[in-house]
Amino acid sequence: MSAKDFERFSQFIYGEVGIKMPISKKTMLEARLQKRLRYLKIEDYHSYCEFLFSSEGMQRELPHLIDVVTTNTTDFFREPKHFEFLSDTVLPLLAPRLGPRPLTVWSAGCSTGMEPYTLAMVLSEFAGTRTSFTFSILATDISTQALEKAVTAIYEEERVLPVPSMLKSKYLLRSKDRSKRLVRIVPELRKLIRFRRLNFMEDFTFKRPLDIIFCRNVIIYFDRPTQEVLFQKFCRCLAAGGFLFIGHSESLSGMDLPLKQVAPTIYQRI
């Protein structure tokens, strides 16, 4: 890939999805695009670049390019202390304030669905102790490929190892063909989550303020100014007293945001 074509890709990706692509990522981008070149029967990166930026390419290929450049690393019960704090502190605090309305939760950057399904398990367990408690979960990602897997809700058995045994027996179904070593989230849990595609670089709003936002290990791919703009958007969507959970490798230090830290990587809307 020529330096000129890489610069064109880099500027476009930054403008479209906010992800910085320094020259150090050129080899990575080349490797990830190889599969697309083979699929499209395109011989070189320059020809792919010309196709992408055509009107046909923008319509047909852009979602695939986004799938290529986004990283979908996730696990069930990733950073487990977050879910302990959610269950032990956040839910008992927010539940009495809700009245008849449901608790609203957003899994922002949900990848292949392991985070929102973990949230659904934790919230369902809490709901079992509170007859009037209901909730809704919105899960979004920019990758159509990741969302397709999330909706299918089928995972390899080794991916569900972090799920506690009691919750496995309650919320997971094993494949009838044991040689496949696959599990699927039970229908009762799947129907509790709405999946949709969302690009953080676009303007987005919600019908009602959100009580909880999980956006973890997503903003590390953005530069600092983009991170601050994004968290300002989140704060506008978050209800007063609502909670924001971010990844342990991320920081809001120095940002002018209406949030107070209540635990490591957990913030409450002032």
Rank of each mutant, 00 (worst) to 15 (best):
T134Y: 09
L173D: 14
E188D: 15
S111I: 15
Q232D: 09
Y267W: 09
I213K: 03
K4C: 14
L161N: 07
E188P: 14
L252M: 03
Y48S: 06
T104Y: 03
I13A: 01
Q145V: 10
P162L: 05
E7D: 12
L103P: 01
S55I: 11
K168P: 06
I13D: 01
R78K: 01
T89W: 12
Y45G: 07
K207R: 06
Q34M: 13
P187C: 13
L198M: 02
H64A: 11
F133Q: 04
F135T: 11
A95F: 14
F214R: 05
A153C: 08
F51G: 00
K207T: 11
R216H: 10
A263C: 02
A108S: 07
G15D: 12
T70K: 00
F76P: 03
D5K: 08
P209K: 08
R78M: 04
D141R: 04
K149R: 09
I42E: 04
L62Y: 06
E56K: 12
T73W: 10
C110A: 12
S111G: 11
K176Q: 15
H46D: 09
A239Q: 09
E202W: 07
T70L: 02
V69M: 00
I219A: 14
S111T: 15
T73A: 07
L40K: 12
E115S: 03
I19A: 05
F243Q: 04
S111W: 15
R78T: 05
F6H: 05
T152Y: 08
A31C: 07
R159G: 02
G113Y: 07
C49Q: 03
L182A: 09
T104P: 00
A240E: 13
K25V: 09
I23S: 03
L103Q: 01
S124V: 09
